[in-house]
Design a protein around this nucleic acid. Sequence first.
DNA 1: TTATAAATGCAACTGAGTTGCATTTAATTT
DNA 2: AAATTAAATGCAACTCAGTTGCATTTATAA
Lengths: 142, 142
Amino acid sequence: MLEQTKVNIIDQSNEALLDQMGLKKTKLRLELVKHFKDAKHAQSYSDLKQIMGEGVDKSTLYRNLSAFEEVGLIHGINDHSGITKYALGASPSAGQEHAHFVCESCETVYCVKGMTEIQMKVPSGFKAKNIQTIIRGTCANC
Amino acid sequence: MLEQTKVNIIDQSNEALLDQMGLKKTKLRLELVKHFKDAKHAQSYSDLKQIMGEGVDKSTLYRNLSAFEEVGLIHGINDHSGITKYALGASPSAGQEHAHFVCESCETVYCVKGMTEIQMKVPSGFKAKNIQTIIRGTCANC
DNA sequence: TTATAAATGCAACTGAGTTGCATTTAATTT
DNA sequence: AAATTAAATGCAACTCAGTTGCATTTATAA
Ligand SMILES: [Mn+2]
Ligand SMILES: [Mn+2]
Ligand SMILES: [Zn+2]
Ligand SMILES: [Zn+2]
């Protein structure tokens, strides 16, 4: 269980953020951080590729997503579609407790805070460490 | 939202089950149903291939899993590993409310019933239809 | 027994994500 | 400012779970 640097992501400048995370400030990374800060919902690889420009390299983009994820700048979300989506902030399993809402109509994924506490009742002998919640439904745009 | 035939899966003979589901009783399907009834945890494609015999065809096995899933005989579980695992019974989103426990040590996936009710608090304009819960932790064998 | 729709087997394919490696670049040192 | 160097990039090739097209076989019902 890798302890992540705790940083106020929204308050920091993009440059300062990358500095603190120990990541070099490349053009793509700065654009990525800026975009993640503005994004109203989670972003897939192809969402990002479209926004960053079709010329952006697949490996580079994926490697940056992994790097961002490792330092807790973003978290990947598995919505059972087979396509990982990414959103700003650490993952629920790394302290930033929240659920994920998947719109059944437009497939958009949102991070949602304010879930009421969940009881983890598990069979005896089992030890629950954390919970991942995916809520399916219809989003405000649909 | 496809309505599934409601059948008491555990009570029925394997033959009767396939009959009721409108599926032909092939050797592999009967073995699969039998195995799913006995299984203490969710089964991956490769678990099943090993048990059904290495000779079993990949397409046939996957197609049977899809067929079983369509009629609600089994449900697929996406545990974030990239490998779908299958267990007897309809999916939580199709009435059989339960959670999934993923062991962080042995990667085994279990269906667990008896979760306490979860409040689905979502932003205004959003409509929650169902919740999927994955509990991560350590299983009784680890 | 025959007819037929469904199931099977095989090979080729798909698509998200990864990897190896040569080249370039951001950041540090002189 | 120039040289150094570790990290980032670009590209092509790869991986691997799962899917698909199609010819052949089989379960079931007429
Ligand atoms: Mn989130
Ligand atoms: Mn289950
Ligand atoms: Zn929507
Ligand atoms: Zn275990």
